[in-house]
Computed example of a mutant assay.
Amino acid sequence: MSTVIYPSPIFGPVHSRRLGISLGINLMPADGKVCTFDCIYCECGFNADHRPRLKRPTREEVAAALERKLKEMQADGQLPDVLTFAGNGEPTAHPQFAEVIDDTIRLRNTYCPEAKVSVLSNATMAMRPEVHKALERVDNNILKLDTVSQEYINKVNRPTYPTYDVREIIETIRSFNGHAIVQTMFMRGTMDGQDVDNTGEEYVAPWLETIKYITPRQVMIYTIDRETPDHDLKKASPETLNAIRDRVMAMGIPCSAAY
């Protein structure tokens, strides 16, 4: 079973397939996972297997730890390409997320002004006014949309609250008026004997129509890279990802594929 639990509040730097040299910012507890999704492919494992006992770091703790690390990296002459909010769960669920973003932008401007601030989010909190405004202020507002099928999302992403509505998520992403990057996981395989392959035309075609409707500034598609908690999942092939990427780009929207 996958048990990648990241340090908190700062981890790395690590090399991201999509973002370069990334210094991670984890707003979740250091001993467990707190997420509004319970994805079957999450490298941090299933929510129920990693209930935390520690609290989330405070805004002040995040800022202090980030400043220490940036001073250290500056002294070593190795500054990050990106400051990435990721880790053990949904970063925008932190009660001080907007204030943390303000602190991070200030520290970025002081120590590594060339670096980008990125947020990897499942978009479940993005409709909240304070979160929406904060995401408008970051360089890379990366929002997950694995499919436009509510049934598939319920089976694979497994929202932890009953009111999740993919149509609301689509409208929320669109409301950023191009200041959003859509991130989509494509994969194959089964879970408990059920097919979870979302690379077929029945999933790809409506997803493409939705991408056209949202008109994000960029799309990032990717597939499984690390161990997953469900071991019957399989990577999508490079050929499959390339074909989907090319269809996105044919609509005039930049798209990258990570294998």
Rank of each mutant, 00 (worst) to 15 (best):
I5D: 13
Y6V: 00
S8K: 04
I10N: 09
P13S: 06
P13Q: 07
V14P: 02
S16T: 07
L19V: 05
I25Q: 02
M28V: 05
C35I: 08
F37K: 01
D38A: 12
Y41A: 12
Y41T: 02
F46L: 15
N47R: 15
D49E: 05
P52T: 14
R53A: 13
R53F: 10
E60L: 06
E61G: 09
E61Y: 00
A65G: 01
L66M: 00
E72F: 09
Q74F: 03
Q78I: 13
F85Q: 14
A86E: 02
A86W: 00
T92Q: 01
A93Y: 04
Q96C: 01
A98S: 10
E99I: 03
V100D: 07
T104A: 10
T110M: 12
E114S: 13
N122A: 03
A123I: 08
A123H: 05
M125S: 13
M127W: 15
R128D: 04
H132V: 09
H132I: 07
A134S: 11
D139P: 00
D139R: 04
N141L: 03
N141Y: 04
S149N: 12
N154L: 12
K155M: 15
K155A: 15
P159S: 06
P159I: 06
Y161W: 14
D165C: 10
E168D: 13
I169K: 09
R174C: 10
N177I: 01
I181N: 03
Q183P: 02
Q183T: 04
G189T: 08
G189Y: 05
G193M: 04
Q194L: 11
N198F: 10
N198I: 10
G200Y: 11
E201S: 13
V204F: 07
A205C: 03
E209K: 15
Y213E: 09
T215D: 08
T215V: 11
R226P: 02
T228C: 13
T228I: 10
H231S: 15
L233W: 06
L233S: 06
L233F: 08
K234V: 14
S237W: 01
N242K: 15
I244Q: 04
R245T: 09
M249Q: 15
Y259Q: 12
Y259P: 05
